[in-house]
Design a protein around this nucleic acid. Structure first.
Lengths: 197, 197
DNA sequence: TTGCTAAGTGGAGAATACCTCCATATAGAA
DNA sequence: TTCTATATGGAGGTATTCTCCACTTAGCAA
């Protein structure tokens, strides 16, 4: 990812411009906005954008990378203070809320997470870690795999991305699903709204 | 839906041609194929297609309608012979398999079901009925609503639509989810592969 | 049969988006 | 200062969606 020939200074500068513009435009107009618009906002040619980010998912993964790094870090710091079920619950709720940050992002969540940015790797790693802990603690059925979590996170994101205040429904659906993988529902969950930097 | 001014005979004929072509093309090339291609295959102008089916979802709902009618009928006939949990389990597994009939259909499942074709109405009605029975029997948590089922059916369809033989994963995920809404997992489920007419 | 007209038709073309290609420009090493 | 690998921008080819309207026709009424 970062191990290749370093970018020339001007290219690096434009890369940053593109990411800043993409963040703004995706927030305003959703994740499916025309990439021409992103390039225009960034003040670069469309060719430059494509050279740096060959697919929309690459661009999405890059705009999410820093957020995902912070998200994984927060989760990792918090988890020792929670029981395994609650740690996994918080992780999922927050992941879903993050993926609702850009309208239309949810459908790409799985694809984006497969792109090897540091943030995506950290997020996948942290989720797998929490699942493993929860399974070893006997709180989650052993036949569940991490992909199942992503599958359901995607579904819940999709189902709630139109809602004006999706939080309660997210909490409900996560609860239902976690019950499905073996947990007792928690009537008083410790979940907090993520900062959404 | 059908209560409006009846179509002129020629229009009705073309409508049938369009549906037959759409069925073929969607099966071969997936639900996101260009609608020009459907029109060409049907031997009608693109304008005619749009006049009859203003959105892609209208066309999808229409191609699915007969199948959904049969699906709901089968479920209704079978359900008295099963316990409420198994009836709901079969319904969900089959709904997911049906929605994998065209590649790329899964993402539209929710939208399509909202379109008032007889098949969609029958399918929604049957699902709501089975959920209600299962809840009254105490087999499913009372806080689950039918939309939750659609949300999860969509997720499972999406997650499995790339798989070459998705059946085992569908069964696994449905099982996990139904466990989530309160059911005991059934080690020996009575589910059968739908006919997929 | 013969108009008549509401209903239907097809496809050109405007609008939008994707993505490639390459003549040109430039950072930065030597 | 020179040189060249790297980077740039945007024109333009391709694809798709969807509208619009001049033309056609089914089917009714006389």
């Amino acid at each position: 990812m970062t191990g290749e020939t370093p970018l020339r200074a001007d290219a690096q500068r434009k890369r940053v411009q593109i990411l800043a513009a993409a963040e703004d435009v995706f927030r305003e107009r959703g994740a499916r906005v025309s990439l021409d618009e992103v390039a225009k906002r960034a003040g670069v040619g469309i060719g430059t954008l494509y050279r740096r980010f060959p697919t929309r998912e690459d661009l999405l993964a890059a705009t999410y990378s820093a957020r995902f790094v912070a998200f994984a870090e927060t989760s990792r710091t918090r988890s020792p203070h929670l029981d395994p079920s609650d740690a996994l619950r918080c992780y999922l709720e927050e992941l879903i809320q993050y993926s609702n940050l850009y309208r239309g992002f949810a459908a790409s969540l799985g694809t984006v997470l497969q792109i090897g940015t540091p943030g995506c790797r950290a997020t996948l790693g942290e989720g797998a870690r929490l699942l493993d802990i929860a399974q070893k603690a006997g709180a989650v059925r052993p036949d569940v795999i991490f992909d199942d979590l992503i599958c359901v996170a995607t579904a819940i994101s999709l189902a709630t991305e139109q809602d004006s205040s999706p939080r309660p429904r997210i909490v409900h659906l996560v609860n239902v699903f976690l019950n499905g993988i073996g947990m007792q529902p928690n009537p008083n969950p410790p979940s907090q709204a993520p900062n959404m930097a």
